[in-house]
């Protein structure tokens, strides 16, 4: 009973081109560790050398920015949708 992770274009070379992959874990941190096992190299694209989410990476759990939740410690449960989206801006 995995979670679904939506993968943005720049990371698809780690997922053999897949735009959505499965992963498991009960926190975002565990999900990212699990992603790394399945798709080696993806973790360091998302986390900086201190292990924090990179400045220009946004991660959403069921549409909520994890910076508003508990960041890497945000709880996830089976069937959750996780989106990885490059930070974008540009006004309204």
């Amino acid at each position: 009973m995995p979670v679904r992770v939506r993968v943005p274009t720049p990371l698809r070379r780690f997922t053999a081109g897949a735009d959505e992959v499965a992963a498991e874990g009960s926190s975002l941190r565990q999900v990212l560790e699990n992603l790394e096992q399945r798709h080696p190299g993806i973790r360091e694209r998302l986390l900086d050398e201190k292990g924090d989410i990179r400045r220009f990476v946004n991660i959403y759990v069921n549409g909520d920015d994890v910076r508003f939740l508990d960041s890497l410690n945000s709880k996830v449960k089976d069937g959750d949708d996780i989106s990885i989206v490059p930070a974008i801006a540009g006004g309204r």
Partner: peptide, 27 residues
Amino acid sequence: GNYDDVNRLCSEIADKYGWAFVNINLR
């Protein structure tokens, strides 16, 4: 959804449909 939700969806649409999103892939 709110504006952030819209932005997030648009990043995903830009990836999938190959459109020119002025403030995403043409940023």
